[in-house]
Simulated scan of single mutants.
Amino acid sequence: MKLFALATVAFSIMVAGASADPIADRKENMKERGALMRILAPVAQGQQPFDAATVLDALEKLSANAEAATDIDALWPAGTESGDTKSSPRIWEDRAGYQAASDKFAADTAAAVEAAPQDIDAYRAVFGPVAANCGTCHEGYRL
């Protein structure tokens, strides 16, 4: 009986995962990314005080967010080019380019976490490349 119950739960989870809405998932990913950038950017710009623990926490969350978005086939599958989305058709036309941009963002955020900046100058040095990725994607892959 326990085996049947476990199998039922596992199947339910698989079905729920299979019916996920990629557009909603990527919107949620980008919404989270934006919220984290609203923590990190003001610190880099000197509008908020530098606090190593706060910065590292936000960088760790941003890195996890970036890593989750490297599976572009899950978040930008064929057939999700239209609808309620701000994703440019260029994502589907230039899969390799978009994958490279996504991988670079993930690598730069991971490097920022690894650096664990302890002062504003060290933070700015690692945050610059992270922030530059946002502009690259927004200009090339966002409507």
Score class of each variant (00 low, 15 high):
22 P>L: 03
87 S>I: 07
89 P>V: 09
42 P>N: 05
112 A>C: 06
5 A>D: 03
81 E>M: 09
74 A>G: 09
113 V>I: 04
98 Y>G: 08
22 P>F: 03
125 A>M: 06
40 L>C: 02
121 D>M: 09
73 D>I: 06
136 T>N: 15
57 D>I: 08
89 P>A: 11
74 A>S: 10
101 A>R: 05
116 A>I: 08
139 E>A: 15
67 E>T: 15
91 I>Q: 04
16 A>W: 07
128 G>Y: 02
136 T>K: 15
106 A>N: 07
13 I>D: 10
3 L>P: 13
110 A>D: 13
70 T>I: 12
18 A>M: 14
124 R>I: 00
56 L>H: 07
105 F>N: 07
39 I>S: 12
7 A>T: 00
110 A>E: 03
88 S>P: 03
93 E>V: 05
23 I>Y: 00
46 G>Y: 04
24 A>T: 06
8 T>N: 08
134 C>A: 01
19 S>L: 15
6 L>H: 12
36 L>D: 04
133 N>L: 00
120 I>N: 01
120 I>L: 10
31 K>D: 12
26 R>S: 04
115 A>Q: 05
137 C>W: 14
136 T>D: 15
38 R>H: 13
106 A>D: 11
132 A>R: 10
46 G>I: 04
13 I>N: 10
87 S>T: 10
4 F>Q: 14
60 E>T: 14
30 M>Q: 04
81 E>L: 02
18 A>G: 11
125 A>Y: 09
100 A>D: 13
23 I>V: 08
133 N>C: 11
53 A>G: 07
133 N>A: 03
116 A>K: 12
19 S>V: 12
12 S>I: 05
65 N>W: 05
16 A>C: 07
25 D>R: 03
32 E>N: 08
27 K>W: 09
105 F>Q: 15
49 P>N: 10
20 A>Q: 13
52 A>Q: 09
8 T>D: 12
35 A>N: 14
97 G>C: 03
72 I>D: 01
10 A>Y: 11
136 T>H: 11
60 E>G: 06
35 A>H: 12
84 D>H: 07
94 D>R: 03
34 G>R: 11
11 F>V: 12
54 T>M: 02
79 G>V: 00
72 I>R: 03
102 S>L: 00
123 Y>F: 13
126 V>G: 06
61 K>I: 03
41 A>P: 10
76 W>D: 08
86 K>P: 11
20 A>K: 14
115 A>V: 02
56 L>R: 13
124 R>T: 01
107 A>H: 08
108 D>W: 03
33 R>G: 05
106 A>V: 09
131 A>P: 13
81 E>Q: 06
83 G>C: 02
13 I>K: 07
88 S>K: 14
4 F>Y: 14
90 R>G: 07
18 A>T: 04
36 L>M: 05
5 A>V: 13
2 K>Y: 15
125 A>I: 09
75 L>R: 08
69 A>D: 02
73 D>L: 08
112 A>D: 09
106 A>S: 12
44 A>T: 01
115 A>I: 08
11 F>W: 15
134 C>L: 01
92 W>V: 04
123 Y>C: 02
88 S>G: 09
94 D>W: 00
130 V>F: 02
142 R>N: 11
85 T>W: 00
2 K>V: 12
114 E>F: 08
21 D>Y: 01
46 G>P: 10
136 T>A: 14
109 T>W: 08
125 A>W: 09
48 Q>G: 12
120 I>F: 06
12 S>P: 05
97 G>L: 04
